[in-house]
Amino acid sequence: MRRAVVVLLGGALVAGCGGEDAERAEVRSYLTRVNEVQSAQKDVLVRADTVLRGYAESKPIGAPALEGVEADVRRVRAEVAAVRPPAAAREVHDSLLAIYDLDAELVGEAVRMLEYQDAAPEALAPLDKASSRLRRDLDRAKTAPAQARALDRFGSALGRASKRLDLLDVPVLLEPAHAAQVKRLGSTRALSSQLESAVRNKDSRRVATLLLRFRKNTASKRAERRLTRSGIKAYTARLQELTEAQTELGRAQARLNRTFRTS
């Protein structure tokens, strides 16, 4: 999805024929100044555009590539905000600032998502070892108490993984995926506890039923890919908001132009 971060207001926006009244001159002066501010910061805005589009297109963008970009975008936004618009250009001014706000928010969310997508798999990684140990211990266990102890150890590993996930800084766009992951861990831990109880009670029918559900819950290792796909999907939806904001800026420009159009 391609978009432009650099939103320059057209110099011909309020061009007219003949003389120019004071209000038209104020608007033209405002547009000129805003163009100058943005042109001077073009490299910053192009960098933001490049890394954000790269993330949305699933390119290998790391958190270091985004370092400082949010602060840079907010700095340019502050410089644009400092240009005081005349009353006639207020709508255009507000629409432009809204685009900068969305840009900065998107950069911040991208950084947090990248950091989370690195940290979440790391928090879950010990479960692979715990799952392998569980299978090995269950294969070797000759008694119900030994099997129950193996399940108890695995349940504890699930609890520790849940606590590690709880400590992560979860970006807003990944909150649903994070909640689903935590819920899945909780469900697996509950099944582990129920299975442990059934084993201790030597309830073979319940053990068989719970074992099928337990294996299904612990079989998937696609958590990292699911998180990445969820993040990019949510991020792409936010980019659509930016496209809509740019469209609204174009409408505001058109309305301003009509206001000063000479007959």
Rank of each mutant, 00 (worst) to 15 (best):
G18N: 02
A4Y: 12
L8E: 10
R24F: 01
A12H: 14
D21N: 04
L8P: 13
G19I: 05
G19P: 02
A25Y: 07
Y30R: 06
G11H: 07
A12V: 08
R24S: 01
V7F: 10
D21Q: 00
G10M: 06
R24G: 01
M1V: 11
R2W: 07
E20S: 05
V27G: 02
A25N: 11
A25K: 15
E26G: 03
E26H: 04
G16N: 02
R28K: 13
L9G: 01
R24I: 01
A25I: 05
V5F: 13
G18I: 04
V5L: 11
A4Q: 11
V27P: 00
S29W: 04
V27H: 02
V5E: 12
V7G: 12
A12D: 15
A15R: 06
Y30N: 03
M1D: 10
R2D: 13
G19R: 13
V27N: 01
A12I: 08
R2Q: 14
Y30F: 05
V14N: 03
M1G: 15
G16V: 04
E23D: 09
D21T: 00
R2I: 14
E20I: 12
A4C: 06
L13Q: 00
M1N: 10
A25G: 11
A22S: 08
V5P: 08
V6Y: 09
C17D: 13
G11E: 14
Y30D: 01
L13I: 09
S29Q: 10
V7Y: 10
L8S: 11
E20D: 05
V14M: 02
G10I: 04
R2E: 14
L13P: 00
D21P: 09
G10F: 03
G16I: 01
L13R: 02
L13V: 07
G16K: 04
Y30H: 07
R28P: 02
A4S: 10
A12R: 15
V27R: 01
E26Q: 13
R24K: 03
R24Q: 06
R2S: 15
Y30K: 06
V6A: 07
G19L: 11
V6M: 11
E26L: 12
L9Q: 04
G16M: 03
G19V: 09
S29D: 11
E20V: 15
A25E: 15
A22M: 08
L13K: 00
C17P: 10
G10C: 06
A22I: 09
G19T: 09
A4K: 11
A4N: 13
A15N: 11
G11M: 04
S29R: 15
R3V: 13
E23M: 03
L13S: 05
A4E: 14
S29N: 14
G19Y: 06
V5I: 10
C17L: 13
E23R: 07
Y30C: 00
C17H: 11
G10N: 12
G10S: 14
G10D: 14
E23Y: 03
E20R: 05
A4L: 15
R2G: 15
V14S: 00
G19N: 08
C17N: 12
G11P: 00
Y30Q: 08
E23C: 00
D21A: 02
A15W: 04
A22E: 13
L9C: 02
V6E: 06
V27C: 07
C17W: 09
A12G: 07
V5D: 09
G11Q: 07
E26S: 11
R28H: 06
R28W: 04
V6I: 08
V14E: 00
G18P: 01
L13G: 02
E23V: 06
D21Y: 00
A22C: 10
